[in-house]
Structures are given as structure tokens and as C-alpha cells.
Design a protein around this nucleic acid. Structure first.
Length: 337
RNA sequence: CCGCCCUUAGCUCAGCCUGGUAGAGCAGUCGACUGUAGAUCGACUUGUCCCCCGUUCAAUUCGGGGAGGGCGGACCA
């Protein structure tokens, strides 16, 4: 923090809640923002070895929280991944180890981030008995609903009903004040709020990041399993090509498809949720014939320029690839070792 | 445990009755047109037809066995 004078000072509440799709509850977040020091937030990730843009979105929020004074726990959820049919336990555990370095390379503050392996505490006797207690409190239908957006595979296993209950239980066991996740996690967090009091634990406050639309179509949500994603494995050329192929009408509010399915502008979304949170200023390089370079200090101005036609989507894409590459380069180098 | 149905391209499925190694839509790839993408045209690609055994000159197709998935198995009808 050697040069704070050029950085716009943001108060804790604003930094904590910016770019959030939802916060539960507003009052609880305000209380945390009033005195963030020593408070702990967490995200759980199923280990995948390589960080992708979905991980990066919640990681941005963790960085915000660290800058607001929070302490941060990253749960490398090896047991969860196992329950979600992601492979053998040994394989999962191995990839979990690689993930830690990926997060550090991405920009989490190493001295202020606690990495915890799920299996380090989720197999303890007390935990197991508490888990069974939550199982007793929860109908199968409720657990299945909570998992609807998370489950992999086409048939629901008993393990996948246990999964959200463990997620709930992790919160008190990790001593967490604030649970972070994408919007696909909201039903799990609501379940946690409902069931934790039954074992005399505090219901958690949660904050959910938005889901970014599929890069290629602007429809649905970007997924690492289907469609195009961006990860730390991508070369500069990969990124340029993926960004160039992205759906990008010259507006922030595209027309729905002929079938009536809603569409977003994923290029703008990536600027909003990935680029501007990490860069104070963004320069769009533009050939002289089209008016020369443009500079932005916030997302709103860039969106407005795209909307008005001042900024052409092709130029926006060029800048997006450049800044995404800067975000990914450290992780890519780390992977290469 | 018992019964019925399903398993064919990345996805949803047709074909099998009347055996001769297979199709559609969507997706994807490549061009054209746009200073991006999309839309729209044009061209193109894709398959252990779930596995094993049997019958047959020949099996995705017929028979048997197995695996995976779905639904059902009080009463009422």
C-alpha cells in the first residue's frame, strides 16, 4: 500500500458487497462491515487442479474481503468432490495440493489465507455425529433441491444428499462468519441457515456472486464442464481466440433468443466481474483510424461507451483478452513449473 | 426380490418387426457477409449402434446372459 493516494478509498461495506448478486442478510453484512477485523470468510472449492474463471470470480470477492480486513479460509473440499463423484479420493487429494498454489498465484494474500483440506476435520467423530444429526433434520427432497445446481451426473446418489449438509456443518467447524459462493450455492446456504440452529449453531451470513453467462452464447451460465471456459491452462492465444469467439452484441442488454431465452453480454460481464475489480484503470488500445486508445477507470463508463457505439466490440475484446491474460499469467507460469 | 421400459453422433432421438456395419434435428468445424460475436447463407466432420455368448455366409437389427439407467410393485382402477 505504498501509493494509496491515487486509489479511490472504498469503505468496508462497499468493498465487501460490490459485485455481489445477493447478500443474506443485509443487516448481518452491515454488522460485519462495521467491524471486519478478525472476522473470517470462506469459500469451499472442489479441487480441480487448475483454476478457472469460475474460481476466479469468488476469489475476487475473497481479495475484496481481505482488503476490507477479513481473514479468509479456502476450503479445499476433497471429501465433497469425492461425494460428488469426481474421482478416487487419492486423485482428488493430489489435485487439492496444486490448487493452493494456483490461488496464491492468482492474488490471494498468502499470509492472510488459511487453506484447509476438508478431510482434515470432516472425518472426525464429532463432525460425523453432528452430520448425522443434520441428516435427521433434513428431508431428502430438501437436500436434493439444494444440490440441483451443483450435482454432477444424471442420477442423484445418497452421497449428493449428504454433501450440502456437510457444507452447512463446515461453517461452524471452520469458525466462519461469512460464507461466500456463487448463486448456485444459495440453496445450500439457505439450508444451512435452517438446519444449523437445530444443533445449537449460529446460522451463517452468506454472500453470493453472480453467475456469468456462457461466453459463446450469452445464455445460461458459464460452466467448466460444458461450453467455453477460461482457465490458467490457457495460453495467450487461447484466450484471444476464446474472447474473440465470444457473443458480444454492442449492448449490455441483448435481446432474448427466438425461443425467449434471456441473454447477457458475457464480454461486459467479464469486464465487470473480473477485470475492473482487479485493475484501477483499463486502457483499450484502438487503431488510430477508429479514434485511438480509450481509458477507463470504472466499468460503468466502458459499458456506456459500448452501448453508445463509441466503443466497438472488437476493440473491447482486444482489451479483455489483454487483461485476462495479465490475470492468468502468474497461474500459468506456476502451472508450468 | 419381482415386473415393465430404456441404452445408436457431443445432446435429443429415428432406424431394428421384414439381418447386408446407420440417419435427422440441435451442437461443432470451415468459409461468405458484417471492423467482434450473433443472425443469415454455403460447405463439411463425427459413431467400439452398452458388453459377452449364440444362430447365421452376414447381427445395431434375431435369441440368451450380463451391466447401467428410469418407472412400478397396499387399496382403488
Amino acid at each position: 500500500m505504498s501509493d494509496n493516494r491515487t486509489v479511490v478509498r472504498m469503505d468496508a461495506y462497499e468493498r465487501i458487497t460490490r459485485n455481489a448478486a445477493e447478500v443474506v442478510t443485509e443487516e448481518e453484512i452491515e454488522a460485519l462491515a462495521d467491524d471486519p477485523d478478525g472476522k473470517r470468510a470462506y469459500v469451499g472449492y472442489e479441487p480441480s487442479g487448475v483454476l478457472h474463471i469460475g474460481h476466479m470470480l469468488t476469489a475476487n470477492k475473497l481479495i475484496d474481503l481481505q482488503e476490507a480486513g477479513f481473514e479468509v479460509t479456502v476450503l479445499l473440499a476433497d471429501v465433497h468432490a469425492y461425494l460428488n463423484d469426481k474421482g478416487s479420493f487419492e486423485e482428488i487429494r493430489h489435485t487439492a495440493e496444486r490448487m493452493r498454489d494456483q490461488f496464491i498465484a492468482y492474488g490471494l494474500d498468502e499470509s492472510n489465507t488459511q487453506f484447509v483440506l476438508g478431510s482434515d476435520f470432516q472425518l472426525d467423530d464429532d463432525y460425523t455425529l453432528d452430520l448425522h444429526s443434520l441428516e435427521l433434520e433434513t428431508t431428502l427432497a430438501r437436500a436434493e433441491r439444494a444440490m440441483a445446481e451443483i450435482t454432477s451426473g444424471d442420477s442423484v446418489k445418497v452421497s449428493q444428499a449428504v454433501y450440502p449438509l456437510m457444507q452447512a456443518l463446515d461453517i461452524p467447524y471452520l469458525g466462519v462468519d461469512l460464507a461466500i459462493g456463487g448463486m448456485e450455492q444459495r440453496k445450500v446456504h439457505m439450508l444451512a441457515r435452517d438446519v444449523l440452529p437445530s444443533i445449537d449453531r449460529e446460522p451463517p451470513t452468506s454472500l453470493h456472486t453472480p453467475l456469468i453467462a456462457d461466453l459463446g452464447t450469452g445464455r445460461g451460465k458459464m460452466s467448466s464442464s460444458a461450453g467455453v471456459t477460461i482457465s490458467m491452462e490457457d495460453s495467450r492465444d487461447d484466450i484471444e481466440s476464446k474472447v474473440n469467439d465470444a457473443y458480444c452484441p454492442p449492448t449490455a442488454d441483448p435481446e432474448p433468443t427466438d425461443d425467449g431465452e434471456a441473454r447477457e453480454n458475457p464480454v461486459l460481464q467479464v469486464f465487470e466481474y473480473h477485470v475492473f475489480p482487479r485493475f484501477d484503470a483499463v486502457t483499450v488500445e484502438r487503431p488510430k483510424e477508429y479514434g485511438g486508445d480509450l481509458a477507463y477507470e470504472g466499468y460503468g463508463a466502458l459499458e456506456a461507451d459500448l452501448e453508445s457505439g463509441e466503443l466497438h466490440p472488437a476493440d473491447a475484446k482486444g482489451a479483455l483478452a489483454e487483461y485476462l491474460d495479465r490475470l492468468i499469467a502468474p497461474g500459468r507460469e506456476q502451472l508450468a513449473e
